[in-house]
Write a protein that binds this DNA or RNA. Structure first.
Length: 940
DNA sequence: GACTTGACTTGTATCCAGGGGG
DNA sequence: CCCCCTGGATACAAGTCAAGTC
């Protein structure tokens, strides 16, 4: 049994990294279409566990039949492997074509290109597939519109140098249009292709120097298991075959032996005495004197001081003089590393010119200007205060209420809507809703029949009686003029003059000032979303059954207001009243309403930089750190439970193993009126495949399912034998649409976890494993002597490792290939420059050897120039690597939600990396507590 | 019901090439 | 030759709102 070390094991391509979202969603959707049929059966089965028990027994007698669908899948895979090998060949042909001085590197690059173009190809295919899903009449209606646009945009996307591939792609597309069935295979192939190309990457990367070899490998992350498995050593070898008789004995009662990990008593206050780092100069909070001044006055006085005059309050002076130094240090750093030579000069000049100009315009001193730009209203160091333990979230809360969407502006009379070729003047309400659809004509959504049907149904509900009598067929509706009108509007918006833009900005700031803040316990804090969602069409993700339904306009009469009794209660818009005003200080929301499509509550809440959010966040990481302390025991427990008598306990233990090792989400049950996505507990038999041996590895489980947001999760995981055997048992006598863990749900799992450690739930494992992975990776990847850009690359790599672990994917950014090409060109020119400089330097040294002082000086100069160029080249190459590795991986989510910011902060402090390089402004605001708190020695 | 997580869209700042003027 | 300005491309930040967890 091999369990990979998150850091060292880079050679296993996990596949999931490679895909782009669209193809995944689509591929899976089609591949699983049969599961749609089973869906209802599965759902009822998961609810009725008792019946399942009986069924289990019944099934035992019936023979093996498990899944014909599995077999089908296998077939698909076989056939796809042929395609796979052919793609292999062509990619090596590509390689041959490439000639460059750095052969290995170039090889890799071409592989990547191939990889990329494959993906684009697949994406095009998926687009076509979507078309197919549409009913015929719709297709007639939109084909000319959407189809053409898509194909033309796809042409733009791919590079001109790949005409050949292009043609074949187009041919592929045509073929696809004709041959429906083939497309399924293609999609499988696309997956295989991805595997193959990453394998290519892998083999060629071996040849490279260390740096480059790291560069192209996909990292497989499996948190923190290496040392564990060694610890567990021998006990793992014991194999228990569960015989039928034994199975009979398996009991379903709740009396199973739970090994309870001694619970650790913990609270936030416990961590207060951890070493606090020195405050970065620009993050400081108001001084004591300042605290005495009422908040609003303070704010006002600061603003005044900053914008008006030279005369400052002593307080402000203090702040500024403290803040300035650090900023300057960073700025200097930046320039030194980023803008050497001419560019540097230019940049500096530009900068100074700019600042002179603006200063002359509005501010007498450069310090002031800087100050004003990044003025921080106030830093409330809530983390230094003691936490309320009574469950109340605030004592005082005052705000202005939410901001409603602007009223509908009817279309000008010149913009016509046509039905069946004839102009129809719509009533205002139906015109508004028609407008929602018209705006989306270019979007894939309008090619989906679910979307169209839902929209049309809801649209008809707002139509007048006459309109419903006339408009009966969506395909006869012509929204083109409306669409063109909206496009021209947005065009106009883009082309606004400077003045208009400034005016608009000022107006928005005004609104932000009025509605964007609240006062909570004496502090002014930013509100996260003070705007009420405007009406529109519901855009569910994946195959959401409700997509296209009308999201109604929210009125004050729908809105609950929450604030304190003694505050100024917000006034509803004129002529309206609130649904209710309440004063509930056990919750954090300021306003809420119920959205009509899914009947879910929506809330107005505070910004992540607020105390309320920050405290919660901090607590989350503390819980995760506690898990770190108990993780060994917990792992022992669930390993022991793999042998438990009760099926329920076994399932729980295996599920927990997946959650821990693969950072899967818990997987709550879902209703039928939501997209069919799963997490760990809701996995169905059809979502995994068991292979006793696969690619030279033993006991491989292949996961393939749609997770949150219908993002595909694909992973091939070698597991321990006992897990494998258990899975075989869980799957026995079940259909593909049956729950894999039929004796388990998230509630019982979390109850169990709570027993193991207070506050522990399934998602804590995700946080824990993400954070611990980051810490380990950082330790491993950071070279203390490296330059700052190299360190940043290391950080991004560590971050990426986490993102891969958590399966955070993104669509390849538009124009990625184009920008990569531009970058490559830039690198090439830089290389040439380096060559030239090298030659120059060689000549100069020769001259210097026999020459005079003057020549020696010249030689030195050449040397420096050469070094500078080399550094620039290196930086560009790093950028290239970073960008390419990131194309399908989203780093933001993990950074924002899973990584204990103190790890990053301490890393920055330890390695002298400016925190700005890791966190942008919003992120710094959100993690202010961590930036303040964590020193270079912080350990998760 | 309350709150976090998450991908996507929209808005904005920055970079950069190219042209005109001093 | 240098500087400035401009517009377009691009990258990044902010905002949005759906979809999870508990």
């Amino acid at each position: 049994m091999s369990v990979e070390n998150p850091a060292s094991d880079n050679d296993c391509d996990s596949g999931k990294v490679n895909g782009n979202k669209n193809e995944h969603v689509n591929g899976i959707h089609n591949g699983y279409s049969s599961s749609e049929k089973h869906k209802s059966s599965h759902k009822s089965s998961s609810k009725d566990k008792h019946r399942d028990k009986d069924r289990d027994r019944d099934h035992k007698s019936s023979s093996k039949h498990s899944s014909s669908s599995n077999r089908d899948k296998d077939k698909d895979r076989h056939s796809s492997s042929k395609n796979h090998s052919s793609s292999h060949k062509s990619s090596s042909k590509d390689k041959e074509r490439d000639r460059d001085r750095d052969k290995h590197k170039e090889k890799d690059r071409s592989d990547k290109e191939k990889d990329r173009s494959d993906k684009e190809k697949d994406r095009h295919r998926s687009d076509k597939d979507r078309h197919r899903d549409k009913d015929k009449s719709d297709r007639e209606k939109h084909k000319s519109n959407d189809g053409e646009k898509k194909s033309s945009s796809s042409k733009e996307n791919s590079s001109s140098t790949k005409d050949k591939e292009h043609k074949s792609k187009d041919r592929d597309k045509e073929r696809d249009e004709k041959e429906r069935h083939k497309s399924d295979k293609d999609r499988h192939r696309s997956d295989k292709d991805k595997h193959s190309s990453s394998k290519d990457k892998h083999s060629s990367s071996k040849l490279k120097d260390k740096h480059n070899s790291e560069k192209h490998e996909k990292i497989k992350i499996e948190p923190d298991f290496d040392d564990y498995s060694t610890k567990q050593g021998p006990s793992l070898e014991i194999e228990v075959e569960i015989k039928p008789e034994v199975k009979e004995e398996i009991d379903d009662g709740y009396g199973g032996a739970n090994t309870t990990v001694s619970s650790c008593d913990y609270s936030m206050s416990q961590f207060k005495d951890e070493p606090l780092s020195e405050l970065p100069p620009d993050e400081e909070s108001p001084s004591e004197g300042e605290e005495d001044i009422p908040l609003l006055e303070r704010m006002a006085s600061k603003k005044r001081a900053a914008s008006e005059s030279e005369e400052e309050t002593p307080l402000l002076q203090r702040k500024k003089s403290k803040k300035k130094p650090k900023k300057e240090i960073y700025d200097d750093d930046d320039e030194e590393e980023e803008a050497p030579s001419k560019k540097k000069k230019k940049a500096e000049k530009r900068k100074s010119n700019k600042s002179i100009k603006t200063e002359a315009d509005e501010n007498p001193s450069p310090i002031k200007r800087k100050k004003k730009d990044e003025e921080e209203p106030e830093v409330w160091k809530w983390w230094e205060e003691s936490k309320k333990e009574d469950g109340t979230k605030w004592h005082f809360l005052e705000h202005k209420g939410p901001l409603f969407a602007p009223a509908y502006e009817p279309l000008p009379d010149t913009v016509k809507f046509r039905y069946d070729g004839k102009v129809v003047k719509l009533s205002q309400d139906s015109e508004e809703v028609a407008g929602f659809y018209a705006r989306m004509l270019d979007h894939d959504y309008t090619t989906k029949s679910t979307f169209n049907n839902n929209f049309f149904g809801d649209w008809r509900k707002v139509m007048t009686h006459e309109e419903t009598k006339l408009i009966k067929d969506l395909s006869k509706c012509d929204f083109k003029e409306m669409q063109a009108y909206f496009q021209s509007l947005s065009e106009k918006n883009k082309n606004r003059t400077k003045e208009e833009k400034a005016a608009l900005k000022a107006k928005n700031e005004e609104i932000q000032k009025e509605y964007g803040f609240c006062i909570i316990d004496g502090h002014k804090e930013k509100i996260g979303n003070f705007r009420i969602e405007p009406p529109g069409l519901f855009r569910g993700r994946g195959e959401h059954p409700k997509m296209g339904m009308l999201k109604r306009r929210v009125m004050p009469e729908d809105v609950l207001i929450n604030c304190s009794k003694d505050s100024k209660i917000p006034k509803p818009p004129a002529g309206h009243k609130w649904k209710e005003v309440r004063h509930d200080n056990t919750v954090t929301w300021l306003a809420s309403w119920t959205e009509n499509v899914q009947s879910q509550a929506k809330y107005v809440m505070l910004n992540p930089s607020s105390k309320l959010k920050g405290e919660k966040d901090w607590q989350k990481y503390e819980t995760a750190r506690h898990l770190h302390k108990s993780i060994d025991k917990i792992r022992d427990t669930y390993r022991a439970d793999w042998k438990a008598k009760e099926m329920r306990v076994r399932q729980r233990a295996v599920a927990l193993y997946f959650i821990d090792r693969l950072a899967l989400r818990a997987g709550n049950e879902k209703d039928d009126d939501q997209a069919d996505t799963v997490g760990c507990c809701s996995l169905r038999v059809e979502h995994i495949e068991l292979h006793k041996e696969k690619d030279g590895k033993e006991y491989v489980v292949v996961f393939d399912f749609l997770g949150k947001d219908s993002i595909r999760y694909y992973n091939e995981v070698p597991v321990e034998k006992r897990v494998f055997k258990n899975l075989e048992i869980f799957m026995e006598h079940k259909k593909g649409s049956d729950d894999l863990f039929d004796r388990l749900n998230t509630q019982t799992l979390n109850e169990h976890l709570k027993d193991l450690m207070p506050g522990l739930t399934a998602k804590v494992f995700r946080t824990y494993n993400a954070s611990i992975t980051l810490q380990k990776q950082l330790e491993e990847l950071t070279d203390p002597d490296a330059s700052i850009p190299e360190k940043i690359l290391a950080y991004n790599r560590a971050n990426r490792a986490v993102a891969i672990l958590c399966n955070h994917q993104r669509a390849v950014p538009k124009g990625h290939s184009k920008s990569m090409e531009a970058l490559k060109e830039k690198i090439q020119t830089k290389r040439d420059q380096v060559d030239e400089a090298e030659a120059d330097y060689r000549d100069a040294t020769k001259a210097a050897k026999r020459g005079s002082v003057k020549e020696k000086l010249a030689c030195d100069k050449k040397k420096k120039a050469l070094e500078r160029l080399k550094e620039q080249l290196k930086k560009l190459e790093l950028q290239e690597t970073d960008r390419d590795e990131n194309k399908t991986i989203a780093l933001g989510t993990s950074k924002l939600n899973y990584l204990d910011p103190r790890i990053s902060v301490s890393w920055c402090k330890k390695h002298g990396v400016p925190i700005e390089k890791i966190y942008n402004k919003t992120q710094r605001d959100k993690f202010r507590w961590a930036i303040d708190m964590a020193g270079p020695d912080y350990v998760f």
